[in-house]
């Protein structure tokens, strides 16, 4: 119905649901959730599309292009699902609207530039750490993986460390 967005769900229940999805991934696939590798695969496919030879010669891209890679990469499909799932949930919650989310003290251009910049950092960080918040913190956390807990602590550490400096962006 026309009108204002509905409120978000109770975080504990949303978390419980997310946990069950994660558990399902464990039981069905023997692997957890993730996102960043889907971007890598997509990038590799684009590079291959433009210059197949270059992609094949590059150790990073070629890793995502073999059998079971490219658009057959598991995470590509998972992320496609994330998109649709988020879309449907947003529609039902009346929360789909074109907007630029920003803090009260920054303008749209600044926010967009910062968003792009944030994406850059995250992309590089995810490749070094071997996963992003979904792949490392969430999945690895549930598996009690040492590296994942280290990564998780560092994510929060890094963010909190910078939070003060960037307070104008968000508050």
């Amino acid at each position: 119905m026309q009108g204002s967005p509905r409120p978000y769900a109770n975080p504990y229940l949303a978390g419980f649901g997310l946990g069950l999805v994660l558990l399902a991934a464990f039981v069905l696939m023997g692997r957890g959730l993730g996102a960043s590798a889907a971007f890598s695969a997509l990038a590799a496919v684009i590079v291959e599309w433009i210059s197949p030879g270059h992609a094949a010669a590059n150790p990073f891209f070629s890793r995502y292009l073999g059998p079971g890679g490219g658009l057959e990469e598991w995470l590509v499909w998972e992320v496609a699902g994330v998109f649709v799932g988020g879309l449907v949930s947003g529609l039902l919650g009346n929360r789909v609207r074109p907007a630029v989310e920003r803090g009260p003290r920054v303008g749209v251009p600044v926010r967009l530039v910062l968003a792009f910049l944030g994406g850059l950092f995250m992309g590089v960080g995810a490749k070094i750490a071997g996963g992003c918040t979904s792949g490392q913190a969430l999945t690895g956390g549930a598996l009690l993986n040492v590296g994942s807990w280290v990564t998780m602590i560092c994510i929060f550490g890094g963010a909190y460390a910078l939070a003060w400096l960037l307070r104008k962006e968000w508050t």
Partner: peptide, 30 residues
Amino acid sequence: VGGLLLGVGFIIGGLCPGTSVVSVATGRID
């Protein structure tokens, strides 16, 4: 190192790779 970079990206961008997909799905241009 990766974790710290992820954290920096998180606070600058306000999103992480997984959530950004959801955010795009709900129409957020940022």
